[in-house]
Write a protein that binds this DNA or RNA. Structure first.
Lengths: 233, 233
DNA sequence: AGGCGATGGATTGCATACGAAATGGGCCTC
DNA sequence: GAGGCCCATTTCGTATGCAATCCATCGCCT
């Protein structure tokens, strides 16, 4: 009865989820080639389904589709990164406005639990990035605003990409304490303050993680570019 | 040298553009079936390309992909519509903030020209909806913020869908005078005022066009829902 | 010896083919 | 005469095959 493979929605969606997860886990890093053949072979599906998944991923901005030249994991520029966080800020503001003073008890519990998990995860760098992102998508989902949820999901995913590219290795990209503080402010219904917190929170990421080490970041970027050109990966 | 068919990017993109345009022009109205075979036959391409285009369109929220049941032009609910305008407001606010006091001369000319065209187009209802939308996408493009541009484009497109579904037939959905006033406020660099204007402008649409005829709209919505459930379409 | 054009392998672009699910109509039964 | 079941048709889901493109390598000509 039950279909054998990974959950619902047809195998095309399964491929999409697999690739997306691989990218967000940094198993596939920005710039990686994504040949239809090898992926299909590895996942046990035909190129057709891989192609469909790649189209979806490109719509989400996670992969770049270069005509006749194959797909690669997206490699956002630093400026695209800054613009992305600007956009994200505008939408997260709406999330906060929508949720302020309106969180129900189970929602609060869920968020609090999640923050606890974040606090407990200090070792694994990649995991803490993922958890930090999930906190924001969790908030978004509670707005029950479909388009808002979709866009926040996309932006959070791409933010991960950007942080893996330009983020400082050992800075706390998303300070967990700021998540807790935000939650408490939302519960108290202090909308204005919550907006400030969220703005500060996201601005911290861009300034703390992205901009301050501008020269270092540029070096890394340039080196990676040349490495790719030389076929080193 | 030059490829024969409709501009660049491969035929899949051509199919995508064709369908998108057809939907926005209301040649294909919400709920219309979109069978892969007939579309492919009509456009002279195979189902493969049509499928790819439909996947893209579903990513943009313009078509709904029902597994094993075919694709239809999206039919947003009234609540989705309201949420969508909320989201759009948050992003248009960012557009206005970014552009206020920073418009260059050629940009101003371009916008002014466009508004003139809008003013001259009072007869054709569908065309005036399209032009009003284009004004907003034009503004967005001037921010040069890639993600912002993409999302505004999507939201404007879906807004058209919603207006064709729930809009009052003869109300001016997007008052042109408000566009002109907004432009002048942006030129003057009065950011706060510009934000107010944009908010009022979009709120006008939701309240003037969507909400006031709530009973009429609800009847239609409810009836359609039941019709669908009964297989009438 | 160095640059330039040809050639072969790999990979994408697109179409077609085949199996599976849903939909609609006809026939049989009650 | 009405209702339900079965089959035919239509449309989707997926795989596969062929032509076109690109990239790298090698050979050739200057």
């Amino acid at each position: 009865m039950t279909k054998k493979a990974g959950s619902a929605g047809g195998r095309a969606h399964a491929v999409h989820r697999a690739l997306k997860r691989a990218i967000l886990d940094q198993a596939l890093t920005p710039g990686s080639k994504l040949p239809e053949d090898s992926i299909g072979e590895r996942l046990g599906v035909s190129r057709t389904l891989v192609r469909e998944a790649l189209v979806r991923l490109s719509s989400e901005g996670l992969v770049e589709l270069r005509p006749n030249k194959g797909a690669v994991v997206a490699r956002p520029t630093l400026e695209e990164g800054r613009n992305l966080f600007l956009t994200r800020m505008a939408l997260e503001r709406l999330v906060v406005e929508t949720l302020s003073g309106k969180l129900a008890e189970p929602q609060i519990a869920r968020l609090s639990d999640h923050i606890a998990t974040e606090e407990a995860t200090t070792k694994d760098h990649a995991a803490s990035i993922r958890l930090a992102g999930e906190f924001h998508t969790l908030l978004a989902q509670m707005t029950e605003n479909e388009s808002l949820i979709r866009y926040i999901n996309e932006l959070v995913a791409r933010s991960s990409l950007i942080l893996t590219l330009y983020g400082r290795p050992h800075s706390s990209e998303c300070a967990v304490s700021e998540h807790r503080e935000l939650l408490e402010t939302l519960m108290a219904g202090k909308t204005g303050r919550a907006i400030e917190l969220m703005a500060h929170h996201l601005e911290s990421i861009t300034t703390r993680a992205l901009l301050p080490s501008e020269d270092r970041v540029n070096i890394q970027d340039v080196l990676l570019t040349y490495a790719m050109a030389e076929g080193l990966g």
